[in-house]
Design a protein around this nucleic acid. Structure first.
Lengths: 338, 338
DNA sequence: ACATTTTTCGAAATCGTTTGCAAAGAATTT
DNA sequence: AAATTCTTTGCAAACGATTTCGAAAAATGT
């Protein structure tokens, strides 16, 4: 790899390395004439500065890390898309890490990055994360960090999320207005902030509408077969739920699967609504009513805020806790059946 | 950031920097006793070597880049997942770049990486890529590179893909056996290798089964509304197709949408089968018959091969062109209606 | 013509790690 | 005992770009 570097350019042009460097960075202390000469040769030889040398010297990597629990989930894909909508313009690169919903992996990844490899981190915590020490350590270190979607209130770090509680309230309200009397909430096991917020909205709606039946909070997992078993149990109890509010897309899919198996008709026997960013939800049998999160915007805004922190700009108060609204789309799965 | 570095460790231990470095890299030329002392302090102070300094010195970044056309597509998410299943163990980091199906962006990204930022690249080319010069330039440069899924035969670079033609043949055959007489192929506009391979399989099946109706190859785009208009036209022609083979998942979705709008019944009026990695395809109305690609495996194998190249190991012949088989899943959208 | 400022450039230090080489001491062989 | 290896460590030079500092050279002012 006979890479062309500053030294080579300098020799060729009969200039000092420092002059070439300055010329390429458009320094005021280089004459227009030499700048032109330098740029021309650099262009011709296809010179590109070695990023490691730059990063080492400037103590700045021009790279950020995104840590997410999983990637086979439309929501996180859209977030990444949103992030990528700002990074190239900033001249930044994006490293992806998956925690696979494992606290230990998450901690190790964060640990791994405490050496200057990245200038900042965006993270959505795993659902097994109960301890926020690893996040807190970063914050205290003064390392730029933002948390999105799966936030943690305990730590003083910018949060970018959606109005989970409000939308959960609306979703539950929607089911109530469609005539459901026994609404179950399908949340993620663990102590996830979004699960808690969504559960709170669910409970608030039940209370507001004075639903007689006691709240039914079901904690599902990452494993489909376990979820299906649990759901089967629940649908075989008497009286069974006539409304399902799934806090996670995957759980709505599990519900559909189980209903098909048990010959329960959606929406006649059970109405279903779910948080989901799946475009194809409209094609389901029946079309699934969803709460769509502004995933792309969450990614974009989170990235913007991270860059503000990296650039040591002051954050507006609203940027410390940004809430982007979701959207409820009614479809056949919550239709009234006469 | 009072980062702890080798110099600090050395001073503290009253050793030379080089000794500390060697001790941490477990060099044979350091006595077990000093190794222990060094490791202990390094552990205590939480020393982590600066990756930029290492990369600069060793001319090796421990990072690979993945360039994909888009990320809001289950297939590519699964590929990334597969890649990530091997990278951490190798101590490697993964940069993600999106070409957004734009040849110029793709070229620029590749250009951007020709400076040592990464040790290798995995790419799935955009559908506007007709010119392979940028890939060829990399190859000639001796830079480690593998192409997956959307490969290009012209260039002598390891390919990892699925048996597109064969599965396209089987999908078409499947429609024929389900009684379809006029089967249309929905491919991506542009000169994409996978489109061509899948088209070839489609045509071969039509020929083998001596289908009277002339082949109908429809070229769709990235824009949903354009696709829907085109599909509407096609379904309003007489005679209209009674079978649709979508080479891309998105096109099957478009087909469903249009059929709903035109009140065409799937599978009675039209049968549909599609390449797709969407788990929820089984929940569609009707459940969509799919050809599932081994996306995760493609990612994993592609990464493994890339690492072999990076480590300058010889490739087995089959690794230069690896074909991982897809799987055809019959569902209601191609069922026989009596 | 001289002094002063401004412009333009070069030498060298720096970032933190790795590594070739030398050197000192210990262990072994002759 | 001398000569030889082997073990263990330190010194210093890389890697390539940036940046501080200072020195010419040119432009300006008196």
């Amino acid at each position: 790899m006979d890479q062309v570097n500053l030294k080579k350019l300098a020799k060729e042009l009969n200039l000092a390395v420092s002059t070439v460097s300055r010329a390429l960075r458009d320094s005021h202390e280089i004459s227009p004439k030499t700048k032109e000469r330098v740029r021309e040769l650099a262009e011709k030889l296809g010179f590109q500065p070695n990023p490691h040398a730059s990063s080492l010297r400037q103590n700045r990597s021009k790279t950020i890390a995104v840590i997410i629990p999983e990637i086979e989930n439309n929501f996180f894909s859209q977030v990444i898309n949103g992030i990528e909508s700002v990074t190239p313009d900033k001249g930044y690169h994006v490293l992806i890490y998956l925690s696979h919903e494992d606290y230990n992996k998450e901690r190790d990844i964060l640990q791994l990055l405490r050496n200057g490899r990245v200038d900042g981190v965006m993270i959505s915590v795993s659902n097994t994360t109960t301890n926020m020490d690893h996040i807190e350590a970063w914050r205290q270190n003064g390392f730029p960090l933002v948390i999105f979607d799966r936030t943690c209130e305990d730590v003083d770090v910018p949060n970018i999320m959606t109005n989970d509680a409000e939308m959960a309230f609306k979703a539950t309200e929607h089911l109530v207005k469609r005539g459901c009397k026994r609404i179950a909430f399908l949340g993620m096991a663990g102590n996830l902030s979004i699960s808690n917020r969504r559960k709170a909205g669910y409970l608030a709606a039940l209370e507001k509408y004075r639903i007689a039946a006691p709240p039914k909070v079901v904690e599902l997992t990452a494993k489909d077969y376990i979820n299906r078993d649990l759901l089967k149990q629940i649908f075989q109890e008497q009286p069974r739920p006539d409304g399902i509010f799934a806090a996670i897309e995957k759980f709505a899919v599990n519900t559909y699967e189980v209903c098909k198996e048990l010959n329960l008709h959606i929406p006649k026997d059970v109405k279903v609504i779910s948080f989901s960013n799946l475009q194809a939800a409209a094609l389901f049998d029946p079309a699934l009513s969803t709460i769509i999160q502004p995933a792309y915007d969450i990614g974009r805004e989170a990235a913007n805020i991270l860059f503000k922190i990296i650039e040591k700009k002051m954050l507006m108060p609203y940027e410390k806790k940004m809430i982007l609204p979701s959207q409820l789309i009614e479809r056949a799965s919550t239709a009234i059946t006469s």
